[in-house]
Design a protein around this nucleic acid. Sequence first.
DNA 1: TAGGTTTGTTTCAAACTTGAACCAAGCCCT
DNA 2: AGGGCTTGGTTCAAGTTTGAAACAAACCTA
Lengths: 171, 171
Amino acid sequence: MTTRWLTPEEQRAWRAYIAASLLLEDAIDRQLQQDAGMPHLYYSILSVLSESPERRLRMTDLAERLKITRSRLTYAVTRLEKDGMVRREACRYDKRGSIAALTDEGFAVLERAAPGHVETVRSFLFDRLSEEQVGQLEEISTAIAQGLQEEGARPDSDDVPWRRRASSACS
Amino acid sequence: MTTRWLTPEEQRAWRAYIAASLLLEDAIDRQLQQDAGMPHLYYSILSVLSESPERRLRMTDLAERLKITRSRLTYAVTRLEKDGMVRREACRYDKRGSIAALTDEGFAVLERAAPGHVETVRSFLFDRLSEEQVGQLEEISTAIAQGLQEEGARPDSDDVPWRRRASSACS
DNA sequence: TAGGTTTGTTTCAAACTTGAACCAAGCCCT
DNA sequence: AGGGCTTGGTTCAAGTTTGAAACAAACCTA
C-alpha cells in the first residue's frame, strides 16, 4: 500500500496545530508554575479532585479522567502529597485501591490559583476565538479524543454528594 | 477585577481540547518510539532539517521553528548526534553559532519512518475530521499560535537551494 | 578600543515522564 | 481450597524537560 501523504491543507493544519498546542501548554505551564508552583497537570489533578464526590477519587479513575498513565499519576500525587495538597487514603471495599483526597490546603491553593489560570486560558485561547470557533474546537477535539479511546469508557454514573467546588476552576 | 469564569461551552471545549491533545501526542509518541526509536519532537527535528536549505539549520532557527527552548534542542540534538542522525557544524560567519546538519543516515531513517508516521497522523486526526473541520482546525490553531508569539517573527526570506526532501514527511 | 551589553549556545541540577517489572489483592474455575 | 489470570498501584532505571547559570563571541558606544 502506497502512502497517502498529507495534502497541503492538512500539512498546514497539522503544523499549525502542533505549534499552537506546544506554545499553549508552555504558556500555561509557565503561568501556573509562577503563580501556583506547579505544572498544569498537577493543577488539573487538584481541579478534578475538587469536583469529585467528597473531593476524592481512586487513582485509576483519576488517571483515566486526566488521560495519563497510572505511573505518571503516582509520581505526581506523591509530590502533591509531600506538599500537603493531597492525602492518600485506603479504599474500604478494595484493599488494593488507594484514594487521592484533596486536602483543605490543596483546595485553598486551587482556589487561589484558579482566577489566574482561567485568565490565562481565556487570554491565550478564548479571547482569540469566535463563539463559533469555540464550538468547532470542541467538536474537533471530541472527535479526536473519541477515536483515541478504543477503551470501553464505562457508563460512570456517580452523581454522589459533594460540597462546594472551586468555582469552575477549569482543568 | 472579578474573574470571568469559563462558560459551560468554553469548559467543554477546553476539556475536550486538553484530552485530545494529550491523547494525540501520546499516540504519536508511542508510534514513533516503536517504529523509529525516537519521540515525536526528535522526528520533527529531522523533518524540519530535511526541508531546510542544504538540510541544515542554526540551532536558534531550529528551536524557533519547532517552538521549543534552545536548551531542550541542545539536549535533543546531542542525542540525535550520538545516534548519527545529525551532525553539528560550526557557523562560518558567526563563530558563536552552531549548525545542525541532517546526515544521510538521518535522512534515511526519516524516509523510512515517514509513511508510518503519516499514517498515524491520518488515522488519528484527519480521518476523523471533515474537510471543513481541517480548515477550521488550521484557523483556530493559527489564531492561538499567533497570539502566543509576541516575538517579532522576523521576515525570514531564505528560499535558498536544497535538494530532495523526504516527501512531505510532515512534522 | 576598552568596557558593557546583547546574542548564541551549552551546562548543570532538579523535576518530570516513560515503560517495564513487581507486588498485592481480587476473581475465577474446578 | 488451590492454582492461575486480571486488576490496582507502586517502583525503578533510563530518558527527557526545565530554568537558571555559565561562557564565549559579537556588537555597541563613549
